[in-house]
Nucleic acid binder design. Sequence first.
DNA 1: GCCGTTTTCGGCCCGACTGTTTTCAGTCG
Length: 573
Amino acid sequence: MPIHNAEIAEMFNRLADLLEIEDANPFRVRAYRNAARTLNGLPRSVVAMLEEGEDLSRLPGIGKDLAHKIEVIVETGRLPALSEIERHTPSGLVKLLSVPGLGPKRVRLLHETLGIEDVEALASAARGGALRRLAGFGPKTEQNILHALETRGAEERRVKRIVAEATAEDLADYLRGIEGVVRVEIAGSYRRRRETVGDIDILAACGPRSPIIQSFIDYEDVAEVLSRGRKRSTVILRNGLQVDLRVVPEASYGAALYYFTGSKAHNIAVRTIGLKKGLKINEYGVFRGERRVAGRTEEEVFAQVGIPFIEPELREGRGEIEAARQGRLPSLIELSDIRGDLHVHSKASDGRATIAEMAKAAHARGYQYLSINDHSKRVTIAHGLDARRLARQLAEIDRLNEGMTGFLILKSTEVDILEDGTLDLPDDVLCRLDLTVCAVHSKFGLSRDRQTERIIRAMDNPCFDILGHPTGRLINERAGYEIDMERLLLAARERGCYLEVNAQPDRLDLTDLHCKMAKDVGVKVAISTDAHSVTDLDLMRFGLDQARRGWLEADDVLNTRRWPALKRLLRSR
DNA sequence: GCCGTTTTCGGCCCGACTGTTTTCAGTCG
């Protein structure tokens, strides 16, 4: 099986960790990490790029040497430099780096003086009081390490955005009510609207006498205070989420918001541009010498650096800065562009509301149409519809449509793609529908080639319109089934098929990178909620987040169109 | 190891906090 970009990135990150423990040139270490970040943000697999004869050294952060190393990895599955370093530096040391409070210097010291190679040995050394005797360590450090191991281990876990939302917004509201506080915003990956959040970064602007830090650590949900200074404090909430609060004066608010929104890769790139223009950029402002020339708003910062405003969703170091300089930034799709939902369920299968209730709710949200997509019979657990029940549903939709003006219920299905690539309803039934959403619900374990061919065979059916939840992944629960996304997109383009961005917060499938891939290949997507209830219709915004992070504009999305225009894009309709 | 409107060498983002020190190293984001 061809190697994934993420696996190559993982090798580079591992090598960077080990090099750092060996006290290698820090800039060399950074080069490996930068290359890993580039690989993780690529919309295409390097395997495919190499097959097409592309020069990898043209990618940012990848020069001649790393391009060659990637080729070797693609050919052999191995990175010789990594194997070499693992011969004299135990690879178990990498795990120690994720223990809070331990960095490369200390890990190296632990290994050289106490022979510690893994987390278990570290814990027992800490319990035995061996750490406090090491240079630079002390009783407090030893205790902190032990505490970290006992409470959270070396595990790091990102939580789904929707889970982080309620916690973060409540805390932000609480902070807004504190004396002297002028502005509060949640920055970090939360503001970039990533699908998962590692910790929550909150930025506050307030006067010098505001008791905000004390109030922050007094917040009722705080379980543990990790640090507290005058400008910054970090706590762990009872639900395990880590929250960082940064406090800046109002004059620095925009610079700080920009700085703490990240991403790191984006910030570094912009700061480097600033440096070339003689500007120093930090969280307090943009400085020319000692003089602050910007800082109150993000717009000021961009203006000083000389590039147009870049939306937070795009700030991932994936080419947005080049695009901004060349005036090629996308005009990102907005929620108000959406004119209808193309994937919802009713009581007929596993939904909780009637068709009429769903339609009324969709109309109330300003939509012009709503497509009803109950499961097909193969999905027995969801009371999937056979041809006869579907025919009755179509008659019901006709009746409902007669009673409505300015709104249309579309006849559709979420038809199962069977193992052999055929669809779970007869063609003569499917072709009577306004559109079809086709999806995989079984046999997730097929090989990458067989799974891809299964779906492409399904697309060969002229009634196939939209591939629903294209990878089947559930965030933090299961990886998607193996598919060759590039092949799938090319096949979709040839056949006039589309892919779905499923807006369920557990799915968000396609991912942001897949959205970008689809756009680059020229395949439009539908952003759909897969709603099983009236309130689920409001999940649309999560799909929008994902699409915006994937650089999509209104034109790239099917359901920004009025029905007549949308109908013309669907096959054989 | 990468990079170039200071271009093939000599730079490479930078500030806050903690715990150890007694002026700062290490870690973190």
